[in-house]
Amino acid sequence: MNTWWLSNQILIQSTFISLLLALSIQVPLRAGVFSFAGVGSYAIGAYTAAILTIRYQVPGIVAIGAGVLLAAVVGYLLALLVARLAGLYLGMATISFALLLGVLATNGGDLTGGATGLYGAISTVTTEHVIAVAVVVMVLLAASERGAFGRKVDAVREDPQLAVSLGVNVIGVRRMVFVVSGALGACAGGMNSLLRTTVSPETVGFHLVVTALTMIIIGGALSWAGAAIGAVIFTWLPSLLHTVGEWQLLVYGLLVAFAAVYVPNGLLGLLQTGWRRLQRRGRRIPAEGAAAGTSVTAAQDPEQELAALGGPTGEARP
């Protein structure tokens, strides 16, 4: 166990960091907001943490915290800016925002280290810290998916007009997911910088969008658990794929494509369907217990499930 732990430390760290990044996109999606701002926040967090650590030797927690705070504020401002957009358009706008930050980093001169980036950000952040943070985040998110608040968010996603008429502060919820997404992304970025002790423009590029998105889609977009499944799979997949050698990338592409086309609700969706079938077979009465499970709630209604990614529906469904 101990050797395994030591030799796989980087993968373990990456799993939780990718998880946080994936969550920074999953959280807005759950409220029907198709935003990649989390990837931009990752860059903000990564650079803030590295700059503070290298220049001012602040403790790791302060460096990451500052990044989180900054990204949360930027997230709020961004939410105000893109308030009019939805769907793919919002996606594109936020991707542009994330990539723009990459260019900014390349042109940041001494502050960001230009094309080389920054290195030597030595801190005391450890794997255990990352896991602790990720666990706390998961617990909080799991809680937010249940109860009145969870239903409020679902309502914002499913039918914003209805939600407004029910007294839900739709605009408020949307702004909040931008802030949360910013904080999560920055937290992932900051921890990654400090654990790797380095950050460069190429580590905050477009590939993060792809990684995070595939994790959520393949894991399942409706719950934090889906993001967790996706993060585990995509962090450990490359080391499994070594057996296919030179065609690793090809197999990766085929897997993503196949999952996106034929497993639309992600592995979580498959598991839930399978679980429900099992239960139905076990006892004939509809299982009350199943509904209590955090993630199952959302998947109960297939129609709801289908609409989940879309955001405010309105015109999409009759």
């Binding site: 050797t3 430390q9 080391s239 050698g245 690793q248």
Partner: peptide, 18 residues
Amino acid sequence: DSAASAQEAASFASQAAA
């Protein structure tokens, strides 16, 4: 095979180190 990924490379290095 690191496939040019920093994370993969770091992971292999830490495996070797451990």
